[in-house]
Amino acid sequence: MADNQTKATEQSVEEYIAAIDDESRRKDCQALIKLMTKVTRQPAVMWGSSIVGFGSIHYQYESGREGDICLVGFASRKGDISVYGLRAAPNHEQLLASLGKTRSGKGCLYIRKLADIDMKVFETLIKEAVTAKGKA
C-alpha cells in the first residue's frame, strides 16, 4: 500500500506565505492562520509542500489504508484558496449555503478571497468540523 504523500514537514510556514506573490492573497492566508490557530489551538505546520495545516488526526479507511492528516488546513492555489477538513461538521451543507461566494470540490472548499465570505459562519464551520473530529 502506498504511503500518504501529505505529511507534516519542517518547511517554514512563514516562507510559504511570504512566497505568495499577490499581496491580497498573502493577507488572506495570514488571516486564515490567525483564525485556524485560534479555533484549533494548534500552530500552523506545513503538510507536504503546499498545505498549511493545524493539528492532526489519524484516519483509517475500510480498505485498511491509514495515516495522519491535519484537522483543518488550507493551500493557496492558482485561482483560489483551497480549504480542507470542513466536511466533518455535522451541518456543513447548511453552513456552506450561508457562507457566501465559494465552490466545493470532493474534499475541499474553494474561496477566491475572504471578503467574499461571512467570516462568522466560516469560523463556526471550522469549530464544528474540529469538534466533530473529537479534537476541540
Rank of each mutant, 00 (worst) to 15 (best):
L99G: 01
C108L: 10
V45I: 13
G53L: 05
G100S: 06
S12A: 03
K106T: 11
L32R: 02
S104L: 07
R65D: 11
M46W: 02
K27F: 01
D22P: 04
Y110K: 14
M1C: 04
V83E: 05
K133T: 05
I81S: 08
L96I: 10
A2Y: 12
G67R: 10
E14P: 00
Y61E: 08
Q60T: 13
G79H: 09
K7E: 10
C108K: 04
T40V: 04
A115N: 13
K133Q: 15
Y61I: 11
K127L: 12
H58Q: 13
M36V: 02
T6Y: 13
L95I: 09
R65K: 15
L125D: 09
K34Y: 00
V52S: 08
A115T: 12
C70M: 11
K113D: 11
T124M: 11
V121G: 02
R25I: 09
E123V: 05
A129D: 13
A31R: 14
N91Q: 14
L125C: 07
P90K: 13
S49L: 02
G53T: 02
I51W: 05
A2T: 12
S76N: 14
K78V: 08
H58S: 09
Q60R: 15
A44V: 07
C29A: 12
G107L: 09
E123Y: 06
L35I: 13
T102V: 15
R112Q: 10
T40M: 02
A2M: 10
